[in-house]
Nucleic acid binder design. Structure first.
Lengths: 238, 238
DNA sequence: ACCTGAACACCGTTCAAGT
DNA sequence: ACCTGAACACCGTTCAAGT
C-alpha cells in the first residue's frame, strides 16, 4: 500500500495557488471567515505550509488585492478625459463588484500595492492629459477618494435586506420619530427601494455621484481653478 | 482587615461607565486593541461582568457609536439649506475627528442606531426645507455617502507618515514606473504634503469635495432635476 | 438568585523537536 | 536542511459549578 489516496491530489503549493484559493474562499464565505487555518484546510495542507509562500496574513491580503485590481480593464483609447476616466472607474467598479470584501480590505491596507499604484498613475495621467494642473488633479483625486477604485462611500456596509416586506416596512413609531427618513423610504418603496443604503439601485447611485463630481471637475478646469482660493469661505461658486 | 485596598475603588458598573471606558480605550490604544477581556481588565472586573450591561461585543460597538454621534452639534438656525447642511456635516466631522476608529466602526454596523437615524433625519429635513424633491434628496444623500457623517472616503486607512523625510521621498525606480504619481507627490511636497492619502491637508480636501457636491446639488435643484433622465448616458450636464 | 471561573472553539504566529 | 506538531498568547462567549 504505497499509493496515496487519490481523493487528496496534493498539487504542489505555490504563492499563486494560495492567493487564488484565498480569493475564492473570501468570495464564497466572506472575508471574516478567511483565516490562515481555514485556508490551509481548504488547500489540504498544514497551516504553517502557507508561511512558505506569504510572510503573514497581511501579505496574503496584499496579494489578494493585487489579484482583484489586476482584473480592471486597461484604459480605452481615444476619448475625452471625462469619458476615459468614467470608463476606467466603472471598470474598476465592475471588477470589485465580484468581490464584496475587496473594498474593505483595500481600505485596511496601509499603503498601495504596485497594481493599485499603476492604476492610480493611469487615472492621474488622464486628468493631466485632459488639461488639469497638478494642483487641481491632486484635489480632484482626493474628491474621488475610494470612488476612484469603484467602491461607494456608503454609511453602512450592510447587505440589502433580501425580504422585500422587511425593506418597505417601517414601524409607525419610527416613522413618527424620523419623518424625513420615513418619507424617503416610502417614496422609494414603489421602486423596490428603501431607506438610504438598503435595496437602492447602487449602480445608479454610484454613477449619479461620479458624474456630479466629474462635471464639477470639468467646470473647475474651465475656470482655471487654483487652490489659492483656499478657505475663501463657503461654496466654491461663491 | 476588612477594608478593601483603596487603590481599586470598585465603582458600581453601569452601561454608561462601560461605554465611556470603551470609547476611552479605543481612543487611546486603537480599535484593534479593544477586546472584551481588555476592557474588563481596564475596569477592574471579570470579563463576564460586562455581559450584564451589553449583550455582546456588537452591542458594545453600537453603544460607542451612539456616544460619538451624540457629540455632534445640534443644527444651527437661520441659514440657507447649503449653509445649514455644510455646518452640520462639518460638526459631524469635528466630532468624529476625536475618535479615529469611529468611521470604520460605523461602517461595520449593519444598520443605523437611533442617534444616527435622528442625525440623518435632520439632514434630510434640511434638503426638503431647501426645496429639494424627495427624489433628488434621495440621490443626493447617496452621493454624500459616508461624508454626511464627516468621514472621508480615502482609499487607504493609513495614518500619515510621521517622518517628513519618509513622506517626501519616492524611490527613483518607483518615480520612473509611476510618473504621474511622482509628479503629484513632488508638487505637494513643498507644502509638506505627499502622495495621495499621506500628509495632505485632510480638512481642506474634505471641504473641497463637500462643496463641490453641495454646489452640484444646488445646480440640479435649480434645474428641477428628476431621476426620469436615468441612464440617458454619460454626464449630467450632457 | 446571583456571580464567576473554567471551558469551548477559535485566532496568528513562534519555535523546538523530529526526520 | 527541511518540515511540522505542539505551544504561546490571545479572542468572544457558553455554561455549569459555586456561594
Amino acid at each position: 500500500m504505497t499509493r496515496r489516496p487519490e481523493a487528496a491530489p496534493r498539487a504542489p503549493l505555490s504563492r499563486d495557488r494560495v492567493l487564488r484559493a484565498a480569493v475564492e474562499l473570501a468570495d464564497g464565505t466572506g472575508i471574516e471567515a478567511l483565516s490562515m487555518r481555514r485556508l490551509a484546510q481548504e488547500l489540504g495542507v498544514v497551516p504553517m505550509a502557507l508561511y512558505k509562500h506569504v510572510a503573514n496574513k497581511e501579505q496574503l491580503l496584499d496579494g489578494m488585492v493585487e489579484a482583484v485590481v489586476g482584473e480592471i480593464d486597461p484604459p480605452a483609447r481615444g476619448s475625452d478625459w471625462q469619458g476615459a476616466v468614467r470608463q476606467r472607474i466603472l471598470s474598476a467598479r465592475a471588477a470589485l463588484l465580484g468581490h464584496p470584501w475587496a473594498a474593505q480590505v483595500i481600505r485596511s491596507r496601509t499603503g498601495p500595492t504596485p497594481a493599485v499604484l499603476a492604476y492610480l498613475d493611469s487615472v492621474i495621467g488622464m486628468f493631466r492629459a485632459g488639461g488639469f494642473s497638478v494642483d487641481l488633479t491632486h484635489h480632484v483625486m482626493h474628491a474621488l477618494g475610494g470612488r476612484v477604485l469603484g467602491f461607494t462611500q456608503e454609511v453602512f456596509d450592510a447587505a440589502p435586506d433580501p425580504d422585500p416586506a422587511g425593506r418597505a416596512a417601517m414601524p409607525p413609531e419610527a416613522a413618527a420619530a424620523y419623518p424625513h427618513v420615513a418619507e424617503l423610504a416610502g417614496a422609494a418603496a414603489h421602486d423596490g427601494e428603501s431607506v438610504v443604503g438598503g435595496g437602492c439601485d447602487d449602480q445608479f447611485e454610484f454613477e449619479f455621484a461620479l458624474d456630479l463630481l466629474l462635471d464639477g471637475f470639468e467646470r473647475l478646469r474651465r475656470q482655471g481653478w487654483t487652490s489659492g482660493a483656499r478657505r475663501a469661505g463657503g461654496g466654491l461658486i461663491a
